[in-house]
Write a protein that binds this DNA or RNA. Sequence first.
DNA 1: TTGAAAGCGCTAACAT
DNA 2: ATGTTAGCGCTTTCAA
Lengths: 340, 340
Amino acid sequence: MTRPPTERRRTLTLRDVSEASGVSEMTVSRVLRNRGDVSEATRKRVLEAARTLGYVPNRIAGALASQRVNLVAVVIPSLSNLVFPDVLGGISAELEGTGLTPVVGVTNYRPEREEAVLYEMLSWRPTGVILAGLEHSDAARAMLANAGAPVVEIMDVDGAGIDSVVGISHRRAGLEMARAIVEAGYRRVGFMGTKMPEDHRARKRLEGFEAGLAEAGLVLEDREFYSGGSALAKGREMTKTMLARSPDLDFLYYSNDMIGAGGLLWCLEQGMDVPGSLGLAGFNGVELIEGLPRRLASMDACRKEIGRRAAAIISGHEDGGQVIELTPSFSRGDTIRPPR
Amino acid sequence: MTRPPTERRRTLTLRDVSEASGVSEMTVSRVLRNRGDVSEATRKRVLEAARTLGYVPNRIAGALASQRVNLVAVVIPSLSNLVFPDVLGGISAELEGTGLTPVVGVTNYRPEREEAVLYEMLSWRPTGVILAGLEHSDAARAMLANAGAPVVEIMDVDGAGIDSVVGISHRRAGLEMARAIVEAGYRRVGFMGTKMPEDHRARKRLEGFEAGLAEAGLVLEDREFYSGGSALAKGREMTKTMLARSPDLDFLYYSNDMIGAGGLLWCLEQGMDVPGSLGLAGFNGVELIEGLPRRLASMDACRKEIGRRAAAIISGHEDGGQVIELTPSFSRGDTIRPPR
DNA sequence: TTGAAAGCGCTAACAT
DNA sequence: ATGTTAGCGCTTTCAA
């Protein structure tokens, strides 16, 4: 029952515009691309003809002939994360006016999907590639190396990049959060996060976090992982579960703001003393936390800026081949008490 | 300083694979596309050569030659809306395994952006077009009519479509919400929403809502609009403002769940009797409301299903040329009291 | 089962 | 300022 996937009615060609306007195809092409000198008179006639016919140029042919493609491949793990739409916003903003268009592919945190998405995108010979993370399959690396286009790996700087890298150190983000917590005098810390072995950035944050605790001779007292469902609801449930199991915890570190918000709501409903006897922190610095009863402590992942800088490298506004490490800003919010 | 936007290093061609394997270009092409009969021996040699070289086919050339493109253009107003990522999820799920790939363009609710994005996408001659809404500029309509590809307008059925339409009636959604509110005995109703003249669906919901109130001889007592910022925080602020101005309201209708959630949180903090003396409702049925202290009354916009059905039309699994109206499910949650 | 020729719709390079 | 010619890298079609 599937329609023969991709046949299509004939659409208008340059030739149609040429005939309608009585101007050669080449000149029509020039007018439409604003290239070379064309008399105002012909220009008008061509534009008029193209408009009334409803001509839309065929970039497939144009790209093949000119060997240029105005596409930037953007490969990210998820759209429902709140994080990546912001990154995309930064990319779009920076690309605005350069003639380049972002094309988005989503991998759902699955390496084999990443490979497939990359292959698909590279087959369109994009001008540049922006992809999340530093961990890729060998095949993916090989493709990227042969892509003949600049590659920017974003979000994370903890590891080796292929070409350019723009991101933050998640290890350090975790580490500094741990230090802030220790400084504030919390001692019995629990962690909650997603059950995603492929979320390398969350993993690195946790590693850094544990290293930070270790500096003070502390270890994580408890941990809990979830997958799927409403993150807000999961944060709520996990918090309840964990506090039932480990009632003496005095701090909860969440791997993202959404579950942190769920946890915060639950704690407040229970009448707990936040941040006095229980501190809370999330990660990402999403807009949402502005609207909570208390501002959740968090760390801004520089999402928009990462997108912007990555796009600037692709557009040539910024030099590539470097590692650009941005500094996430910590915000204590109302859920970590001040240092003692 | 901009890099000459799109020049690129030469990448591998069929010819390279042909030479490396000692098989004609034509046969290499056959192997790579799984078309026609090729002996197992040649097949292996070709695949081997392609793999070791790291060859990625050039779809630009392929598409030009074959006149088929495996792309589906998806044009939506926003990614930060929570709504559209779900729609995209439905589209991707349905397209999985058909060989078709969605390509997303974002308009930010601006008609001139929609026109530009459409033009750009149509220039790649996609197999089909899925776009949000029924309201488009004349130029956009003309382009779509000439696209030579199936067009599916999604989200909304209140108006005239171009080709296929899949969505819900926002007018009716507003109407039924009003009826539910009236039935529950609320009488003094306020409305809050986004200040977006171009958000036609929000507008239609409000129109339907007012019509529903009118059936009971009621009118909106107060209304407030916002733009930008954290929706959760805005919901909070607007609610405070409105209740200060109109303290005798007994119901607040929000044009989306996020501001509704902000309002709910504020009301609960104030110790208000929800839903006893004040009822609340949002719209969309987003996952987030599962995690709130009370489940916010809402109406599910059938996001995933809309994406799925639209994609099914493009892939040919479902007939096109129809208007498919889905029925949003109302959920009373914990913020509307039962009918008296 | 394999190969050769033609051409998809456009643009680069070179006329004029 | 405008036109002509020769491809871009593939696939279609037809021949072997």
